[in-house]
Design a protein around this nucleic acid. Structure first.
Lengths: 257, 257
DNA sequence: GCAAAAGTGTTCATACTACACCCATGT
DNA sequence: ACATGGGTGTAGTATGAACACTTTTGC
């Protein structure tokens, strides 16, 4: 969507193709090089950073929409992607936007548009390896950045709340579901997965207890190979146990009363 | 909403007051007399049981809408009410409804209406004491029942999935948050709260371990009173520790790695 | 041999599980 | 006295937390 004609059509008639009042705003967590970042786009017209986002097509299921939006932005298919909350309480989510807020900022004037109406946002979060991502911007966005989760600037609307909640959900979830399948190479070392967990949780984890736990849960198995890593002892390689991993993804870990 | 004029107005022009394409469908869990039930309504025109539900007003926050809908149906304010998922994947949630599916069934013909358009549903669940509920039906619903969670009939659209997911979420949540404040009298006995947990979880819990846990967590405290219960030993009364309860509600219980 | 990172085992404390008997009450 | 439900304690097991030294490797 980049020709002026397409833009006009989207602004004027987009509601014929998309459901109004609803957007999907994915918080895309990218892990790479021992850092956890989120993808932000610079939105023209608002002059600030915000989440990628998109609308749901009228004849498309909700998860299809979420995956499509993620793929349009990042080029990735089949990553971990999960719905976590609908945002509809913030003042930004209740009021209409004024035409003046948008109109003119894109270089043309719009008097009325479905885009000015109130929109709720369905929050999703995704976990990707950001070195594999090719970010695509469009007419409404002219830049992107991978921003450290600890240094998120003020975002559009209530999106800081969305990001906070996504991070809380991710950290909560990591205690109940395995992660890493999409973030690590097929064969990885204990220090690698250990660091992944530390980075996501934002705290240190005892390496012995950590390794023990993963093995006891049967999520990973040690291979008979090692990786050379320069002037240091070669760590062993591990693999996820696919069945145990899938099972834990589906049924969760732990519970008591 | 019961006069014919109001109905017509709602069917024709309701979209001016409400957001289209979105409903809130609360699964209202009612506990009473050691049974866990959900509230179902009989929907005219579909000739089947379904969840209560409602639309979001254009100038109303999402949680206000959820509470309003709950209150309209049950008369209750300030109960435990929580969003858990948006449903937009089932075939019922992707296609439009045909006018023929609705029109005529209410005793009048409608050719086109915002109600025929695709709707996604935001799932909420609530926990109430159903002996305190006064169910209100309206033009579209002509009966209600409290239905045991283990005997839920086939419901409209994908609502069985909604109910299943609500129950799973409730059972999961009970391990991480205290419940009972809205379901038990202010002073209650150990056997009462014990049975509450057993009923919700659908399994037996050792009474000694259960009581111990609640006390260790500091959620309840023993009072110096007993309740007479006929020809048996009088059980002690307990109260929730409000601060600990609120704290646990907000921050959750447990976690490890 | 040295610097840097990997690997590994044990102890202690806490939390969970399982289990059975006596007590209080009204009839 | 008896039937019914309420109340309580302990021992065994499993799990989590804390903690330090040795090994490997390339230079």
């Amino acid at each position: 969507m980049n020709s002026q004609e397409e833009i006009n059509d989207f602004v004027r008639d987009g509601y014929k193709q998309y459901l109004p009042h609803l957007t999907i705003d994915p918080v895309i967590f990218g892990y790479h090089d021992q850092q956890l970042k989120i993808l932000l786009l610079k939105w023209i017209g608002y002059d600030g950073w915000g989440l990628p986002g998109g609308f749901i097509k009228r004849r498309e299921s909700l998860s299809e929409a979420a995956h499509r939006i993620l793929q349009d932005r990042t080029g990735l298919e089949s990553v971990f992607l999960q719905q976590f909350q609908v945002f509809g309480d913030s003042p930004y989510r209740v009021k209409e936007r004024s035409p003046g807020e948008v109109s003119g900022k894109y270089g043309f004037v719009v008097e009325d548009s479905w885009l000015f109406e109130r929109t709720l946002s369905i929050g999703y979060f995704a976990l990707v390896d950001y070195s594999k991502v090719t970010v695509t911007t469009d007419f409404f966005t002219n830049a992107h950045q991978w921003c450290d989760v600890n240094e998120v600037p003020a975002l559009l609307f209530d999106q800081n709340e969305v990001v906070d909640k996504a991070l809380i959900t991710l950290r909560h979830q990591i205690y109940h579901q395995p992660i890493g399948y999409n973030l690590l190479p097929e064969k990885f070392t204990l220090p690698e997965i250990h660091k992944l967990y530390e980075t996501i949780l934002g705290k240190e984890l005892d390496p012995r207890n950590f390794a023990k736990k993963l093995v006891v849960l049967g999520l990973i198995k040690k291979l008979d190979e090692q990786r050379a890593i320069g002037p240091h002892r070669s760590p062993y390689l591990y693999q996820f146990e696919k069945e145990a991993y899938e099972y834990a993804l589906k049924h969760g870990i732990v519970h008591t009363y």
